[in-house]
């Protein structure tokens, strides 16, 4: 114990420094967003002397600002709605048949393969394909996200279904339940923890994603999502960085709120998602 004490003190000091490093950019973003340029030139870190909201009104005065928020919300919500039903269902079909039936075994392997492919391989052909199919729009992005979520989702759900006793389903089958009836009445409710995990993983991915909307939605400002908007305004904000920080807050704050309420699920979900893939 005696030898451990100095080590403990050093450890605590280092941990505190790391906490400061993590909080520092968030702090700077908050205080700068509420200050005028002159005020922040005087002192970057000081608390704003008054609540200046000019940066926010300026950011929101962009005629398309409502579009960016709406696009991000619509794309995320629509993709997640599809993912939350399609993936548990198709995984159920695969999990219950892949031992007896080669079709389902092959399907499993096929879906899993996408986990390893870097998106760069698909970048050019996918853009080409979307142009040809006339889906260079929100609908296209929603379908693509739903499809790309399959690999990890099927993997996680097939693992989870192993823990659900098959006797329950067989009993339901004897009582005259159809496949879909058994799934929606028994299996889906039991798999709720995994559904939550998959929803969290994909919400974070889709809400924060940059490259796919950059390829598909960059044509006109009315189609931009929040990350694309922030990226495209990089040069516009060269002179007024207080505006830039205010615009960053629009994507940071929803995440802070989400994290504050769902922290336990988010940490569990991301750990499960990472460990199991």
């Amino acid at each position: 114990m005696k030898r451990k004490l100095p080590l403990q003190i050093i450890g605590y000091i280092l941990l505190c420094i790391l906490v400061i490093i993590i909080i520092f950019p968030i702090w700077v973003t908050f205080v700068t967003a509420f200050k005028t340029t002159e005020e922040s030139t005087r002192n970057f870190f000081a608390f704003p002397t008054r609540l200046y909201l000019g940066n926010f009104t300026e950011v929101m005065s962009d005629s398309h600002f409502g579009d960016y928020v709406r696009n991000s919300l619509v794309i995320t919500l629509a993709s997640i709605s599809i993912i939350a039903v399609m993936i548990p269902l198709v995984s159920y079909a695969i999990a219950r048949n892949r031992k007896q039936n080669k079709y389902y075994a092959a399907l499993y392997v096929l879906f899993i393969m996408s986990i390893f492919a870097p998106f760069q391989v698909l970048m050019v052909p996918l853009t080409q394909l979307c142009t040809k199919l006339h889906i260079m729009n929100q609908a296209g992005v929603i379908i693509i996200y739903s499809t790309f979520a399959l690999g990890q989702g099927v993997f996680l759900f097939c693992g989870y279904y192993k823990s659900i006793p098959i006797e329950l389903e067989e009993a339901a089958g004897l009582d005259g339940c159809t496949v879909l009836g058994t799934f929606f009445r028994i299996v889906y409710p039991l798999a709720k923890p995994m559904t939550v995990t998959v929803i969290i993983l994909n919400t974070l991915w889709i809400w924060n994603d940059f490259l796919l909307p950059l390829l598909i939605l960059n044509k006109s400002a009315s189609m931009w999502t929040l990350p694309i908007y922030q990226y495209n305004f990089k040069s516009a904000y060269t002179f007024d960085y207080n505006l830039a920080f205010a615009s960053f807050l629009f994507s940071i704050v929803p995440m802070i709120i989400l994290y504050a309420f769902l922290q336990k699920y988010i940490i569990e979900g991301l750990t499960a998602g990472a460990v199991k893939s």
Partner: peptide, 8 residues
Amino acid sequence: PAVLSLVT
């Protein structure tokens, strides 16, 4: 930091 967007 894991919940934030890489671009932001």
